Amino acid sequence: MALLETTPILKSFGKLVALDGAAITVGESEFHGLIGPNGSGKSTLMKCLAGAETPSKGRIKFSGVDITDASPAARARAGLSLKFQITSVLPALTLYDNILLALQAKSSLVGLIFSRTRGALHDRVMGMLEQFRLASRAYQPASALSHGQQQWLEIAMALAGEPKLLLLDEPTGGMSLEERRVTGDLLQPIKEKCSLIIVEHDLDFIRDVCDRLTVLDQGNVICSGTVQEVQADPRVQEVYLRRA
């Protein structure tokens, strides 16, 4: 059974058709890239999957359950997490407290009121910071981080709830070449527990990280398959040459 599976999704904004029958299937422990020219519908599809937008037509199943009409909070509880392109870390708080708050989202109100969770979660906080090469800066404000490091912190925060599927919208946007390489290295270990859908314009990064790709153009899926299959598809080559 697929972890995530949709029927063809239609999404319109007035007369503008953003998605015109786009569909995607993602398996467990799969890194799936979502690519296409600007305006092809990638971000709209991600928002439909996350619950930020509701499809005009089409259904979304996650772990065998129809979540088409579920709220973003309900999807998060089911194991779906999203990180948008723009970072949403709390810059005035330390890295430690940013991760702690993300972990405390599952804590009871009583535990939060009496501050029982901070000590209990310490090892997990430091473990996540270590995993993303940020432990040495645990007690510095998030505002002191570079753009790339803030992206890593937010990915760590998105993983705090131990999701089954993480949606990443342009995680390497604005990063240096070295930061992009490191990002790929940091993502690989999570594959044992979490699948990914990644929207990216950096095709070299996508090819190195992903198992499968889905290509969108003008709201339609024109190709889906392994990296090698997609690279060899003449429809994909034509789209990128046309938009070059």
Rank of each mutant, 00 (worst) to 15 (best):
Glu179Cys: 02
Val182Gln: 10
Leu168Ala: 08
Leu159Cys: 11
Asp185Glu: 15
Leu186Pro: 01
Glu178Met: 12
Gly173His: 11
Ala156His: 04
Leu187Cys: 02
Leu167Trp: 14
Leu168Ser: 03
Ile190Lys: 07
Leu159Ser: 06
Pro171Trp: 05
Pro189Lys: 12
Gly174Leu: 02
Thr172Asp: 13
Cys194Pro: 05
Asp185Phe: 05
Val182Phe: 03
Glu162Trp: 07
Leu159Tyr: 08
Glu170Pro: 00
Gly161Ala: 08
Arg180Asn: 11
Leu187Ile: 06
Ala160Gln: 03
Ser176His: 05
Ile190Gly: 03
Leu177Gly: 01
Leu196Glu: 12
Glu162Pro: 01
Pro163Gly: 10
Lys164Ile: 09
Ala156Gln: 07
Glu192Lys: 15
Leu159Asn: 10
Leu186Tyr: 14
Glu162Tyr: 02
Met157Lys: 02
Leu186Trp: 12
Leu168Gly: 12
Leu186Val: 09
Lys164Ala: 15
Thr183His: 04
Pro189Phe: 08
Asp169Leu: 01
Lys164Leu: 10
Glu170Ala: 00
Glu170Gly: 03
Thr183Glu: 09
Ala156Pro: 03
Pro189Ala: 09
Ser195Gly: 14
Leu186Arg: 06
Leu187Gly: 05
Glu179Pro: 05
Gly173Lys: 13
Leu166Val: 07
Arg180Glu: 12
Ile197Phe: 13
Gln188Asp: 11
Ala160Val: 07
Leu165Trp: 01
Met157Arg: 15
Ala160Leu: 00
Asp169Lys: 03
Ala156Cys: 00
Lys164Arg: 15
Glu162His: 11
Leu165Pro: 04
Val182Ser: 08
Pro163Cys: 08
Leu187Ala: 01
Glu170His: 00
Gly161Val: 06
Glu179Asp: 15
Gly161Asn: 03
Leu167Val: 09
Lys164Cys: 06
Glu170Ser: 05
Val182Arg: 07
Leu167Ile: 13
Asp185Thr: 15
Glu162Ala: 11
Ser176Pro: 14
Arg181Val: 12
Leu159Pro: 04
Ala158Met: 08
Leu177Asp: 15
Gly174Lys: 06
Ile197Lys: 09
Gly184His: 07
Pro189Val: 03
Arg181Ala: 15
Pro163Glu: 10
Asp185His: 13
Thr183Pro: 11
Lys191Thr: 09
Cys194Gln: 04
Glu192Tyr: 07
Lys191Cys: 03
Pro171Ala: 12
Lys193Thr: 14
Ala160Glu: 06
Ser176Asp: 06
Thr183Cys: 14
Cys194Tyr: 07
Ser195Tyr: 00
Gly184Asp: 08
Arg180Ser: 15
Asp169His: 00
Glu170Leu: 03
Ser195Asp: 09
Cys194Glu: 04
Gly184Thr: 08
Pro163Gln: 08
Arg181Phe: 14
Glu192Asn: 14
Glu192Arg: 13
Leu167Phe: 03
Pro163Arg: 09
Leu177Trp: 06
Leu167Lys: 01
Pro163Trp: 08
Cys194Arg: 04
Leu196Thr: 11
Ser195His: 02
Ile197Trp: 11
Pro171Asn: 11
Val182Asp: 11
Glu178Lys: 05
Pro171Thr: 02
Arg180Tyr: 01
Ile197Ala: 06
Glu179Asn: 08
Thr172His: 08
Lys191Met: 07
Gly161Trp: 07
Leu168Thr: 13
